[in-house]
Design a protein around this nucleic acid. Sequence first.
DNA 1: TTGATTTTTTATCATTTGTTAATTTTTTTG
DNA 2: CAAAAAAATTAACAAATGATAAAAAATCAA
Lengths: 186, 186
Amino acid sequence: MNPFDFFDTVYMVNAEAKQALQEIIREKVYSKNEIVQEIGSRCRTIYFVKSGGARIFYYKDGNDITEHFAFENDIIVRAESLFTGNPTSKGIQAIDETVMMVIDSEKLFQLYDKHHDLERLFRLIFEKEYVNTLKRMESFQFKSAKERYLELLDTTDFIQKIPLKYIASYLGITQVSLSRIRAVID
Amino acid sequence: MNPFDFFDTVYMVNAEAKQALQEIIREKVYSKNEIVQEIGSRCRTIYFVKSGGARIFYYKDGNDITEHFAFENDIIVRAESLFTGNPTSKGIQAIDETVMMVIDSEKLFQLYDKHHDLERLFRLIFEKEYVNTLKRMESFQFKSAKERYLELLDTTDFIQKIPLKYIASYLGITQVSLSRIRAVID
DNA sequence: TTGATTTTTTATCATTTGTTAATTTTTTTG
DNA sequence: CAAAAAAATTAACAAATGATAAAAAATCAA
């Protein structure tokens, strides 16, 4: 999907705002496993996944943890950095050949003063992300690993694109534990 | 703290915006354990806790689960409803004698068109909430119950105000399990 | 294609957390 | 204050998940 078609589903901005946004958005292609944003950097970029997929990841005690997945028509940012300006211990990696639409967040935020519509559009986009995060947290709070896995299968198209090792840490369990759960289900 | 002193720490709005906000904010006092917002309702209110404390809660399999706490100078909303318009299975309850500053969200959202500053102020407020939620989710993903409890002790003033049964479900564990953890620590 | 590497599965045992029930402690109410 | 109710702790056993190691399967690269 074209990002502007997606944006229109969230909020219709006026023509000038759209034009201004068009001027700061560009396409970039990442190869499979390519690092999109390095761990330790500041998040100054908003990505829209046009095709393919990516993950947010970090290391905890030497283990690679996947915190988030994004696929076609998803927005992906490292919010804890984008919204604070602080560097983050998380990175972004393409998990497939991936086409991204890339927005420089500093340029975007500058446009907010002149184009109220853009501030609103992205406010609404990130409110949705916030609600998704709340839902995910809820499933961590009182659902078993098996329930969380079934939920993921149910809600995530593109699940077959994701290596199981990424899925395990995304669910907050070990790879061994995920294998066990899958063995019972199948 | 006066809510406007808090708002000023987030973003300084112009005088007209402040005036408009002042007109839709009012104080309300809740007694201990009083239900502030019923389960099943729509969230059309933004609360600022002036003193006391409150929790967001819901029932899962007949058990009372605390999803969120808010104390002095915190904002509290049921975001999954406020940002979607959908009713929510969560409620808000005062956990102490609590003074709230209450904002009608529909009136506030109407002010956004005229007062860009107010949209920005609340955007920034909720971005902070989003970042807090991300941090909390991260601690669910790969920390043990004991680590989560110690983290809560460390980061939450007012912890002594909260009954342990609320803390247990907030941490995603049973009351019995929390007792065990506390026994080891003390 | 084939050997090397990476990913996934299986098995075993340890640890954490859950469940149930009984007891103690604290809080509330008449 | 005393009785009742609610909250917190303890104990015993069950279930879920972790850790480690080895084997099998899938993927990658020369």
